[in-house]
Structures are given as C-alpha cells and as structure tokens.
C-alpha cells in the first residue's frame, strides 16, 4: 500500500514539477494603447436670408458664432493627446464665394489656434480641407475652451437676392490621436 501511495504521489508531483513555462517571456510587457477618436463638431446651413438685412436692404458681409469647446477640459485627453485633425466639408450653392475662418480661444479669450482661412468659390459643392495640429508643436492648443466660426461673404458685383434660394452647408469633425 505504501509503495502505491508513494507512486501516486510521485506521479502527481512530477506532473506539477515538469509543468514548464520556460518558453514564455514576461519581460517585454509594454502595451501602449493608441486609440483614434472621431467626433462630430460644428455644422450649419446658411441661406441667402442670413446674409441679407431686410431692414436696411443691405448685405451682411460677415456672420460669426461661438461655442464652448470642452474637449480639453478632461485632463485624460489633455495628457494623452498626440495629434488633432480637423476635417471640413463645405457645399456652396451660392453664386458667391465665401471665406471661412475658424479660431480657437482659451478661457480668457486669447487665441490658441487659428485654422488657416479657406476660400470656397461659388457653386463648389465638394470643398474638403483638413488641418492637423501636433500637440508637441502647439501645446497651447490644449488650453482651448471656445471655438468661433466666421463666415465672410466675399464682395461681388452681384448682390444677394433674398427671394432667390441659395445655401452653404458646413460640416466638420475632430479626430483625436491619443497615446495612453
């Protein structure tokens, strides 16, 4: 009986002793997570009435609007952001050209980033442009808290007719490259 027990114990012990994990390597566990997040940002549609003052009968050459921009209020985003890319798509059905300016501000209304202006010629239905910001090169961008979009109606010999329907559509996304 004792011999049998010894044999059984030996077999069980051997099974555990010969268990090997020698071919495993735990020294190079280094996993960087680099997610890329895309979110919709500002969008709008403006028609001829937005550029025409019915009271004065004159064109409105510039319209602007502003919003809080709270993406960077999160310290996790601020700490891990490597690059931000803004994509814009504009459909201009006006017979006039536009200039669009996008400006980011910090909480004290100091400019943190001005995206280079873009001009959209009349009847350009598929205007596409991107702006990329490397955070290492522009760390001040992380203090952005507001965004303003200016839409400037470029001067022309033809005037806006409030009775003729025209439209400009603006779309944008922000793509944020993180390294966690």
């Amino acid at each position: 009986m004792n011999i049998y027990i010894k044999n059984v114990m030996t077999i069980f012990s051997l099974c555990f002793l010969i268990s090997c994990t020698d071919n495993l390597n735990f020294d190079e566990i280094n996993l960087n997570v680099d997610p890329v997040l895309t979110v919709p940002l500002v969008y709008f549609e403006l028609d001829q009435n937005d550029f025409f003052d019915n009271t004065t009968g004159l064109e409105i050459p510039l319209v602007t609007d502003t919003s809080d921009f709270r993406v960077f209020k999160s310290s996790a985003i601020r700490n891990d952001l490597v690059k931000a890319v803004f994509d814009f798509e504009i459909e201009n059905r006006f017979d006039r050209s536009f200039e669009i300016n996008i400006i980011f501000y910090d909480g004290n209304d100091n400019i943190t980033r001005t995206i280079p202006s873009f001009n959209i010629v009349s009847q350009d239905l598929n205007f596409v442009v991107s702006d990329s910001i490397e955070i290492v090169a522009s760390p001040v961008f992380l203090s952005s808290r507001k965004v303003k979009v200016e839409v400037k109606l470029n001067p022309s010999s033809t005037q806006i007719d409030p009775n003729v329907y025209q439209l400009i559509k603006f779309k944008s996304t922000g793509t944020f490259y993180l390294s966690i």
């Binding site: 979110v39 919709p40 940002l41 500002v42 969008y43 709008f44 403006l46 937005d50 319209v63 602007t64 609007d65 502003t66 919003s67 809080d68 921009f69 709270r70 979009v149 839409v151 603006f170 779309k171 944008s172 996304t173």
Partner: peptide, 19 residues
C-alpha cells in the same frame, strides 16, 4: 444621437451649443 454643435448664427439669441 449626436450630430455635433449646430451653429445657428442667430444674433438675437446667442446659444451655448456645448451646454
């Protein structure tokens, strides 16, 4: 559903779109 910040360019009632 989130489409983004819908700017209205309404000078008579300024909106905080993010809010």
């Amino acid at each position: 559903t989130l489409d983004g910040l819908n700017f209205e360019y309404d000078t008579s009632s300024l909106s905080n779109y993010w809010q």
